[in-house]
Design a protein around this nucleic acid. Structure first.
Lengths: 341, 341
DNA sequence: GTGAAAGCGCTAACAC
DNA sequence: GTGTTAGCGCTTTCAC
């Protein structure tokens, strides 16, 4: 029952050479006689030898694992980011270990507390709403394991970060709304305290300001990120005496929720009421009318954060970098106002 | 720079006891003096001691990692399955290491060949289309590491499997179409060779047979799983002299592609042409008309496969189980035919 | 109840 | 160019 894999010891014994030679030959390092090297490699292949990562990790103090901690994976944005991460991790011989927090600060904390630092070479994280774990991240960094934040970054912590340009994306979205004739623009935001949420809020605010439109506090609603919250927020807006004529949603799922609430009230999205989201979730092309949005470079964000992390891992004194990727306005039907006389 | 974590040795030295006592105290095993145990645990907590998994793994021949190999994570089904897997893995102290194949047999093969068996306690896999890796899976099983397949299973291999009841789901979907008055029912299938694809095809075939409807080979199209393929397949169907009046799609994304192709031709989905999918992707509620479908218990599948795998890992002689979870017909607008006189 | 010591599979000085 | 040896952090006999 106790399984036994072939080890370099086995190979050494068969070939009647020492384990160190085998080790060197296998890693194609140091000077090893060409002939010996070939013999070793051939036998290793034949025996289907696979290195034991635990042993390698123990011996050289580095596993080839990077941890990824994020709120969810069941949405377009995060699953695409992971795909990007996985792509570069794989190409560089790293494995990714996945931790999902369900956007719960407690869960995130528990994960961080149980994390065996020594079994990870680095950490990629997108914090949960109301994250409580900043100290833990800082501690881990202090212990020497690099952390790169993506998307939902902990602004207090000094380390590499990769995000999209939330401020300018939001600014552009709102300006697009304005230039299409919508003037009473509401914002259904995410929860307070997340920096990207605030960046989008600020973009919204500044776009209004630039165009001399006064801010109506009633038209800014903070809540969760789901479609349901989008629906609820919108119902709340529609119950106001002073109703808006457009919504900029913090993400596409909330925008879709908004569209559903609007449709239920018989309001024609696009013609009577503008809606724009953020992300470019494939759903935005499926819904009708199709949803205008700011496309986020999710795959790219995954790739870049992982590349950055690997640099931190391999180059000892790589200094922290903050990368900000631009979004892209995608105009669809939900902001196409019918010309009114 | 060389990071140094606190080890049991450190604890032993401080407390002036031996490492073995520390080890025993920490794991709450064997007989250890209550007092000593408490002292050790207190100090460990204070020092923020974290076990080194590489060392534990090496020493007891088991890491607490399970690998997950699957084609994609960027869709509702797989990301939900992973969430289920992650949930039970987490609760049982296992980490999950993610490998995504992009549905490429070559990539899958490469992953399998490079897999360090000794760094994994078990493997959860959903094979790629045209998988080439069966031998590798068999080898890994022979070497003693348990493998559980989910959804896309390799039927030749004898091990535990978890899937939804594709046959009956398809049967029910087609029967639903028939009972709503559609009779010329096409099937846009997945690629040949995947067992779940075939199960759905057989369900389709048998439902037709039961109701005395003859099969039209032109109405069965095999292609990829994406929305684009759904669109193309449907265009192909609509170009036929004998056109169908309904489509059963192998999954919701293809069904949505079909609906788009239909809409582009000016055909009214539901009223003139029935469409039903499989999965219950959230998109099916977003699209208009909303899409009827067979809901798959994705989260449950993830949970059960991981539970099964853990049983295989912990109980030495746990015998292989095949679990088949029922789907559920969800009727929406895309199969609601307008009564015609 | 506790300690000493061997060993998991591998790497890395250090000799030769 | 190759072998010997110590050691990574932990578990686990085996003594006592």
């Amino acid at each position: 029952m106790a399984r036994h894999y072939v080890t370099i010891k086995d190979i050494a014994k068969i070939l009647n050479i020492s384990v160190s030679t085998v080790s060197r030959a296998l890693r194609d390092t140091y000077d090893v006689n060409q002939e010996t090297k070939e013999k070793v490699q051939a036998l290793a292949a034949e025996l289907n030898y696979k290195p034991n990562f635990n042993a390698t990790g123990l011996a050289q103090g580095s596993t080839h694992n990077v941890g990824v901690i994020l709120p969810f994976i069941t949405n377009y944005y995060f699953s695409t980011v992971i795909t990007g991460i996985q792509e570069v991790a794989y190409n560089n011989g790293y494995n990714i270990i996945l931790f999902v927090t369900n956007d719960s600060p407690e869960r995130e904390l528990a994960i961080m507390e149980n994390l065996s630092v020594s079994s990870l070479d680095g950490l990629l994280v997108s914090i949960s709403s109301d994250s409580d774990s900043c100290n833990h991240f800082q501690e881990i960094i202090n212990e020497g394991i690099p952390v790169v934040f993506f998307d939902r970054v902990a602004s207090e912590i000094e380390t590499s970060k990769v995000m999209q340009d939330d401020y300018n994306g939001a600014f552009e979205a709102v300006e697009h709304l304005i230039s299409n004739g919508y003037t009473k623009i509401a914002h259904i935001a995410g929860p307070k305290g997340l920096s990207f949420t605030e960046a989008r809020l600020n973009g919204y605010l500044d776009a209004l300001k630039k165009h001399g439109i006064q801010v109506n506090e009633d038209w800014i609603i903070y809540s969760g990120f789901s479609q349901e919250f989008g629906e609820k927020d919108t119902q709340q807006l529609l119950a106001l005496k002073q109703k808006p004529d457009a919504i900029f949603a913090v993400n596409d799922r909330k925008a879709i929720g908004a569209m559903i609430a609007l449709k239920n009230k018989g309001i024609k999205v696009g013609e009577d009421f503008g809606v724009i989201g953020f992300t470019n979730d494939p759903m935005s092309t499926i819904i009708s009318p199709s949803l205008s949005t700011i496309a986020e470079p999710a795959f790219e964000i995954g790739k870049l954060s992982c590349e950055l992390l690997i640099k931190h891992i391999t180059k000892k004194h790589f200094h922290a970098e903050e990368i900000m990727l631009p979004g892209k306005l995608i105009v669809r039907e939900s902001t196409r106002r019918k010309a009114k006389s």
